[in-house]
Simulated assay, not measured.
Amino acid sequence: MTSEPTNQHRILYHLGDGCEVIAQIGEALNLNHTQVGKAACGLIASGYIERVERGCFQLTEAGVQAVASGVRICGGGSGPTKSIRKPSRNTIRQRAWRAMQIHREFTVPDIAMVVSRADPPKAYKSLHGFLRQLVAAGYVMRTARKVPGTASGSNGFNRFRLIRDTGPRAPVYSHKRGSFHDFNTGKDWPCKQV
């Protein structure tokens, strides 16, 4: 007994080479606006389609490959997804990424002062890990020059430079993959030593 194809399945196989808006998809497949929107969200989370502009969707490379290989999307529970979550807009790392884009050259205290909201020591620790990963992936480089420290006997603060500015969204690190996923370019950037 074969089950009915899901709305996600129907939309995946309906989309061709171009970009289609919700109304076009709904009319072609006899689905309402809400049905198309929900199914599109699931396909985006799976990495099969992307939103090019508001309400306009097209297949990703993964979506084209899925259609070519005959992938079947069945209904059922929504378990964990293998795709990487898009960064939320107001995390410490997203604010830090934006500050790095503005400053171009910076120290950890420079960025921590800008992005910290409630707990500066926590922000400082989080930024150290984020910068270490960004250096390993080639987004940021540590310069030879240090900035004098504030405590007596301090060796100073390391200075960093942003060298790969790919866009407004902060890259997201995946421990499982050992790489950053860049939502600005759609590419993964492996970390050489994290």
Rank of each mutant, 00 (worst) to 15 (best):
K146I: 08
V194R: 14
R164S: 15
Y48A: 02
F106C: 05
A136Y: 14
M141H: 03
K82W: 08
S3G: 06
T143R: 14
L127W: 14
T150V: 14
P121T: 10
F157Q: 09
R177G: 13
H175R: 13
Y13Q: 09
R104Q: 10
A170Y: 00
Q58N: 07
P190M: 00
A144F: 09
P109M: 01
R98G: 05
R85E: 09
G47N: 09
I25F: 01
S174N: 01
K122Q: 13
G178T: 07
F180N: 08
G55S: 10
H33F: 03
M141D: 02
R95E: 10
A28G: 03
K192H: 11
C41E: 08
R104L: 03
R85V: 05
R104W: 01
I73M: 15
V71A: 12
R164T: 12
P190R: 02
L29M: 05
F106N: 05
M141F: 00
S46K: 12
S154P: 06
G129F: 14
A170Q: 05
F130M: 13
S174W: 00
R89T: 11
V64G: 00
D119C: 04
D182K: 09
P80T: 05
S126H: 14
Q35C: 02
L162P: 07
G18N: 14
H128A: 08
A151N: 05
P5L: 05
